[in-house]
């Protein structure tokens, strides 16, 4: 069951829906009665939110790689940064993309991934296969700025080789229905994974951050911190699963999800799962959902800060813990500015 398969075969019965356990909070089958027609070709001008941070760009417009070249399989050679852009400009149509990227042994790559949606009511599917070779380092910063009524599913499959590290931070404002899914195979052997995320959802938006990390062998580390806030009638979904396979001893896995509900009709559904089949592991998870501290708001107001500004300040402070963990200085600055801008409208 996946959106990609349904779009490929033009078959709505392949759409995941509320009866599929992992999709029960992100129902696509109930939403899409038929597969919409293919989106038109568009030109994508160079740029995007990370334009000032990195020179190299790989862009897709409505599912097609820009310039006509087919970059379906790409091997990154050497250290560097790449802007990976998925631009949608469509109305009530659909498009799909598949990209495979390999980071070669010992190299360090930063992928600055952006979802830039214009238009309305389109359906977009993005599949990404990432392979991080031995002792290589991949950082993925994902900025999702989609149309309010768009449907997007981004599914990344990440395979790590021994000693590799993979750090990811998702930042999203959601869409009509949206899922950013990352599935990682972790071979341990000193490798480390970070799976962070921030959601800032207002109005009637929805976003689902789903992750799964499988520790297949001993001595691996996973650290996850996802935070976000929902206002209006927005709905956030966090599903984090860490599987520690039999024999994957010395695994160190930490998962944290903390959400703020800023209005009565907003909702957060969270399902943190640790499945541990090994004996000698250090695993922990924390999950909290609450409201802003009203006493802290009054404190700020009593110092002269107007209420709306106080709320935005405290909400920004709440999620900035995640943004501050981004090591790439340029990407961190973009993420910070983006969060500050979004909170003008959300908090």
């Amino acid at each position: 069951m996946s959106l990609a398969a349904a779009l490929r075969t033009d078959d709505v019965s392949k759409l995941p829906g509320r009866r599929d356990e992992d999709w029960r909070w992100t129902d696509l089958r109930g939403l899409l009665r038929e597969i919409p027609p293919l989106s038109p070709e568009i030109e994508v001008a160079e740029g995007g939110p990370f334009a000032a941070v990195s020179a190299d760009e790989l862009a897709y417009g409505n599912g097609r790689s820009s310039g006509g070249a087919d970059y379906g399989n790409l091997t990154m050679v050497g250290d560097g940064t790449l802007r990976l852009r998925f631009v949608s400009d469509a109305a009530a149509t659909r498009h799909s993309t598949f990209v495979a990227i390999t980071v070669e042994e010992g190299d360090t790559v930063t992928l600055l991934e952006s979802y830039e949606g214009r238009g309305s009511a389109y359906v977009a599917s993005v599949e990404i296969a990432l392979e991080v070779e031995r002792d290589a380092h991949l950082t993925r910063i994902i900025l999702v700025d989609e149309a309010a009524d768009a449907i997007l599913v981004s599914e990344a499959r990440v395979v790590l080789h021994p000693g590799a590290t993979f750090h990811q931070t998702v930042l999203t404002t959601g869409g009509r229905r949206q899922r950013i899914e990352t599935v990682v195979t972790h071979p341990g052997a000193g490798g480390s994974v970070r799976m962070d995320g921030v959601y800032l959802l207002g109005d009637r938006r929805h976003a689902d951050i789903t992750t799964e990390v499988t520790h297949a062998r001993p001595d691996g580390k996973t650290d996850q911190l996802v935070k976000g806030c929902v206002s209006g009638q927005a709905r956030a979904v966090f599903q984090g699963r860490i599987i520690v396979a039999r024999g994957a001893d010395q695994t160190d896995a930490r998962m944290g999800h903390h959400g703020l509900i800023l209005s009565e009709r907003a909702e957060i559904d969270a399902k943190p799962e640790l499945e541990i089949y090994a004996d000698d592991v250090a695993c922990a998870h924390g999950n909290t959902v609450g409201a802003l501290d009203e006493e802290a708001i009054f404190y700020a107001r009593s110092r002269g800060i107007p209420e709306a500004e106080a709320r935005a300040m405290l909400t920004q402070a709440f999620v900035s813990e995640v943004v501050d963990r981004i090591e790439h200085e340029g990407a961190r600055a973009v993420a910070r500015a983006w969060v500050a801008k979004q909170l003008g409208g959300v908090a």
């Binding site: 501290d293 700020a300 800060i305 405290l314 709440f318 813990e321």
Partner: peptide, 15 residues
Amino acid sequence: LEIPGVPGLTFLRTA
């Protein structure tokens, strides 16, 4: 009150 995530300088300057 404790104001997590907001440095004292930032808070005071904002105020």
